[in-house]
């Protein structure tokens, strides 16, 4: 029983990381209507930045995360400006999708060139050991607790930001109708930039938590979590913020529990299998809206 609880909590923690990444996917999709497949690699860049500042230079971990967030935010804005914005009015959505895959490979190879292919040892940003409950039977690692708490805070702050601030309302308006938003006086380009900035900043936090929980980093660290988070976003209903959260948590729990109780090798197959089944039953995802054009 205690073992099960431990796995469940670990699953929620992994799911929280997926959820933070999925938030970036889903917000960018909601507003720019594009799938930013390079999002996972922004996590990896964030991870390396923290590795440089915290693990190598010995800077304060929190300060390192702040620097990494700033770096990833810039990276997100610059990529959007250089690679995606010129294609915004392209006739085919495929153009921007393929560009995003290109950016993903670019970032991976850039990291390969700079840091090499060998895994680097990452010093956890959470030094707290965690807690023991039920007379040492249930041990929860510090990083697990921090991950869950951080993701909850992010969700809350994001909801407040979107519903209570002017920029947040502008984001909602742009995600629904760019033309009508422009008529309200909203600068659509600026709003899209802001969304990329927030998504990439969150990716840096996800990078810090991911590399702390699995303390190595390679140029491909972000690839698989990126895809899983994408699955989480689709599962929850792409474009929906609570959906990304629920999708992420579900995916993390399923992954950890199937690794433990079914098969380590099959875990990913089960995760993607669930995606296929849910999409067959509810094509818009768990919290996705049925898109109906009112004539």
């Amino acid at each position: 029983m205690m073992n099960f609880l431990t796995y469940l909590i670990n699953g929620i923690s992994l799911g929280s990381i997926y959820a933070i990444i999925a938030l970036g996917y889903t917000m960018v999709y909601g507003i720019a209507k594009m799938l930013n497949f390079a999002h996972g690699d922004v996590i990896m860049i964030g991870g390396y930045l923290i590795y440089i500042f915290a693990s190598s230079l010995g800077l304060n971990p929190v300060l390192s995360i702040v620097i990494a967030m700033a770096g990833c935010t810039c990276l997100g804005i610059v990529t959007e400006k250089i690679a995606y914005k010129p294609l915004r009015n392209a006739t085919s959505n495929l153009a921007v999708l393929i560009t995003a895959i290109g950016v993903s490979y670019f970032l991976q190879n850039f990291a390969l060139l700079v840091f090499g292919a060998n895994p680097k040892a990452f010093t956890s940003v959470v030094s707290w050991e965690g807690i023991s409950l039920a007379g040492d039977e249930l041990k929860i690692q510090g990083v697990t607790i921090v991950t869950i708490v951080v993701s909850l805070i992010i969700l809350l702050v994001l909801q407040l930001f979107i519903n209570k601030t002017r920029s947040g309302q502008a984001m909602l308006a742009v995600s629904e109708d760019k033309g009508a938003a422009t008529l309200m006086g909203i600068d659509v380009n600026k709003t899209i930039s802001l969304t990329f900035a927030i998504g990439s900043g969150l990716a840096a936090i996800a990078g810090a938590l991911l590399c702390s929980a699995y303390p190595t980093i390679t140029p491909y660290t972000g690839a698989m979590p990126g895809i899983k988070a994408f699955v989480a976003a689709v599962l929850g209903g792409i474009g929906s913020i609570p959906g990304a959260m629920i999708g992420g948590l579900l995916l993390g729990v399923v992954e950890i529990l199937s690794k433990r109780y079914i098969s380590t090798q099959l875990a990913d197959a089960i995760v993607f299998g669930i995606l296929i089944i849910i999409l067959l039953v509810k094509p818009t995802g768990l919290l996705g809206k049925n898109i109906q054009e009112k004539v």
Partner: peptide, 10 residues
């Protein structure tokens, strides 16, 4: 605008 284009989810 034509077709009102109100923000339906707000």
């Amino acid at each position: 605008p034509e077709g009102r284009r109100v923000f339906a989810d707000m």
